[in-house]
Design a protein around this nucleic acid. Structure first.
Lengths: 333, 333
DNA sequence: AATCAAATTGAAAACGTTTTCAACTCGATA
DNA sequence: TATCGAGTTGAAAACGTTTTCAATTTGATT
């Protein structure tokens, strides 16, 4: 973009055609004679012309960039989703603008507005909650938005998830079937619908079906950090919990290491099922049993869904539930 | 950008000023009378005018986006660097366009060109190697580029690292001081200067200073994956290695679990020092001793260095070495 | 009141590409 | 040869903002 930049005007002059023809050649428009096309391509190569994507974005109203709002790129779960998003984005010739939100509602609104100002063609939103302010921005947006690993309790937004309720129900049932009568539910904030209305619901259903009473004292709210998990061991012990379903792998690793560092054995004294099946479940010892989520696929399918929305392609299902499973490793019997 | 979008023309007309005045107000130019400024701001609020950042980028030749080339966002080391980059970027009002390169030279060139086309104001490059093709693109680029966690053996590029040679020397010395005479060096590809010319050099220096002979059979090249680490245990045993300096934490976790799963004890039978001090070192058992790198700071300082280059601010030092240390945990005596 | 300098404002060009629609070209047909 | 329709090309406007420099305004001074 300085004095020496080759512009479409230079190519047109050198090839003795109009700028419109150069544009047609560059963009693969078929309405160009082969001889003209060759002439233009030769000049493009000779001058090493590189189209300015910003100008193209302004003129064509498509920037080929997609905004991705991620709570924390260092979290193993979210980074796996991001990887799926980026790979499919690249496949469809998009680039992602990545913004960390820290699950801070004010920051989420701020980055949403920044992404809109940058005229992104679409947005993938990851997070645990859709605040009222964020929802208001979603509703006013003409840019398609897809949720990944994030539920919309109003079910208005396109989203890709697993059936968290059924998955947690199955995990809880598994622990109950092992004879555990004191199964703890360790979760992020219950202000978040994904935790309160989906995961906790599955936990309660499993208890009910097993004829076990729901005990609030077995429900633990915390942030999703390893440290918080470690600190939970005394509280879990004080309520005589013998097992736990835990909502995040790093948190679960903290709980597990807190338990074993306290001299108890996993799974003999305390069984653990975590929720994300990240690579961490294989690295810690004992290996952790987990609800299996296809993390990469959640990201990939969300991005693919977004490309359909951006291109006004028909979409069968705006709420996609991918398969889940239960991977038994050494943290359960 | 559709029929209903409020443009600077709408604001100017409504406020009865020129577009230039609206632009001056929006961009905080002081040459506007307070009364005029207020009038314009009122209209901006009433019409909910949102400046188009793409148009601004074209006109001003600054996009306020920064390209970040990362080998794999799911890698714990790189994602921590990315976090530092993004936080400082946001502080300076930039957004990052994140591109996974998979350390594939062809893909690196491709994403470099895409980022240049998108007129990013600067680029942060993470990776283990600068291929000739990539270097050629760097040299032709008028956009400032900073390396983060990546060394330039030609020392031409601005970069932020630690002194890998000294760090590995110290780690190796530590293992030798424990009485190990068969210390293995487990590394990514030795085609990469960071491994061959920096880390291996530190390893060799420690051996030499200890009067130990360098034995090629104690040097292992592999990719940086947990799986590859696990598979290394038999080979390490076959050369009678009693300790290892390992170049990546996920790789080290694999080696360590391979060793302990084979029935040996860490550190009694085999000592391990890893290199990145990611959160993984605390999660595995035993906790891993590590060269300490300020990962977040490498990213943050790289981004800050880039903002200086982008703004033509004076830069004292284009090659920044941040402090390192040695954190002793339970994988060493 | 006239002058001057500083501050403010506006018109138009610039940024680099895409799009639109009229004009032109080409080849087939009568 | 003339006509017609399809294909190709080009001129100019569009996209929405910033920048430049001339014109205008304002306030202070003589």
């Amino acid at each position: 973009m300085d004095k020496q930049t080759v512009t479409i005007y230079d190519v047109a002059r050198e090839a003795d055609v109009s700028m419109a023809t150069v544009s047609r050649v560059v963009n693969g428009n078929p309405n160009v004679k082969p001889a003209t096309r060759k002439k233009v391509l030769d000049v493009i190569e000779r001058l090493d012309y590189r189209p300015n994507a910003v100008a193209r974005g302004l003129a064509s109203k498509k920037t080929t960039t997609v905004g991705v709002i991620i709570p924390d790129v260092t979290n193993i779960y979210f980074s796996a989703l991001a990887r799926g998003i980026d790979d499919i984005a690249m496949m469809y010739k998009y680039n992602i603008i990545l913004t960390n939100s820290d699950e801070n509602g004010r920051k989420e609104v701020q980055v949403l507005n920044t992404l809109m100002a940058k005229q992104v063609d679409g947005i993938v939103f990851m997070g645990n909650d859709i605040s009222d302010e964020v929802r208001k921005e979603f509703e006013r947006s003409k840019t398609p938005i897809v949720l990944a690993g994030c539920v919309d309790d109003q079910d208005k937004m396109p989203s890709v998830n697993i059936d968290y309720t059924a998955a947690v129900e199955e995990a809880t049932k598994n622990l109950i079937d092992h004879g555990n009568e004191r199964v703890a539910f360790v979760s992020g904030s219950l202000d978040y619908p994904i935790n309160r209305d989906y995961r906790l619901k599955g936990y309660k259903q499993a208890l009910k079906k097993a004829g076990l009473r729901y005990d609030e004292k077995l429900v633990f709210e915390t942030d999703y950090s390893y440290k918080a998990g470690q600190l939970l061991q005394p509280a879990l012990q004080s309520v005589n919990a013998t097992a736990a379903v835990i909502g995040d792998d790093e948190l679960a690793a903290g709980v597990m290491n807190g338990v074993t560092d306290a001299g108890l054995n996993v799974p003999e004294d305390f069984e653990i099922i975590t929720s994300n099946d990240t690579k961490l479940t294989e690295m810690v010892r004992p290996k952790m049993s987990s609800i299996t989520q296809p993390l990469y696929d959640i990201g990939a399918v969300a991005m693919r869904l977004l490309t359909k929305l951006m291109n006004n392609e028909p979409v069968e299902n705006k709420t996609v539930l991918l398969p889940y499973g239960l991977m038994k490793r050494a943290s359960t019997h």
